[in-house]
Computed example of a mutant assay.
Amino acid sequence: MQRITITIDDDLLAEIDAAAEERGYQNRSEIIRDLARAGMQQSAKQAAPAGQCVGALVYVYDHSARDLSKRLVQNFHGHHDLSLATLHVHLDGDSCLEVTALKGSSVDVQHFADHIIAERGVRYGHVVMIPAKPDTKPGRKHRHK
């Protein structure tokens, strides 16, 4: 086993401690290991499907985090081909929620979402991807007027 040092904000640590107590864990290391394993399993299950997809990237971030808003905007401008639209909601004095519709190759969408979620100051993030396949069933045409 390896001993590591991590930095966790006070609110998240309080949630981890409460969950550990509720579930009967003896210490923080045990619950953090289990949560990490669960996260890795979830990531494996959500591995990007091959081909094109549409996706929804949902994340909450601290808008006062140093240069975070600027970095997010730069990331989106650098990947303008993936982003269709973004909904921005002010949750409170410090937190913003954004929901972004994405479209492109599943590899590119997943890579972009991972990069946004990993930004310092992003407190929560999740991407849902749906394969975008052409409709080949007879009689099912979708037209925009």
Rank of each mutant, 00 (worst) to 15 (best):
A85Y: 04
G39T: 04
Q110I: 05
Q42P: 00
D11F: 05
K70W: 10
K137A: 12
S105N: 10
G24R: 11
D94I: 08
R3E: 08
L72Y: 03
G39P: 02
P138S: 08
K137L: 09
A19C: 09
R71G: 01
R37E: 15
A18N: 07
H144G: 04
T7D: 00
S43E: 00
A20D: 06
E119Q: 15
P131Y: 12
V127P: 04
Y124L: 14
K137P: 01
D17E: 15
D62S: 10
R3P: 13
Q42S: 02
G121S: 08
A56S: 15
L84A: 03
D34T: 07
H77M: 12
E98S: 06
E15D: 09
H115S: 03
R33F: 08
Y124I: 08
D9S: 06
A44F: 08
R3D: 09
E98P: 04
D34S: 05
A18W: 06
G93H: 14
A101R: 03
F76Y: 08
D17A: 13
V99M: 14
R28S: 06
I32V: 14
N75I: 01
A36I: 13
E119Y: 09
Q52K: 07
Q41R: 15
C96H: 15
F76S: 13
H90P: 15
S64K: 15
L87M: 11
H126Y: 04
E15P: 01
D11C: 04
V109C: 11
H77P: 09
Q46K: 00
Q46T: 00
C96Y: 12
I4Y: 13
A47G: 09
D11G: 04
Q2Y: 01
A18T: 10
Q46C: 00
S43L: 00
D135I: 06
D10I: 02
N27F: 06
E22Y: 11
V109K: 06
L72R: 07
V122M: 07
L68P: 11
E98I: 09
H80C: 03
L102R: 00
A38T: 10
A44Y: 10
Y25M: 13
H126P: 05
Q46H: 01
D135H: 08
G121L: 12
Y61G: 10
K141H: 13
P138L: 10
G104K: 03
V54N: 11
V109M: 08
Y59S: 15
D135F: 02
V54G: 10
P49M: 08
I4R: 12
A38C: 10
A44G: 13
T7M: 06
L91G: 11
G104T: 01
K141M: 03
H90E: 14
Q74V: 07
D114T: 07
Q42D: 10
H142S: 12
L35N: 06
V58I: 05
A38N: 14
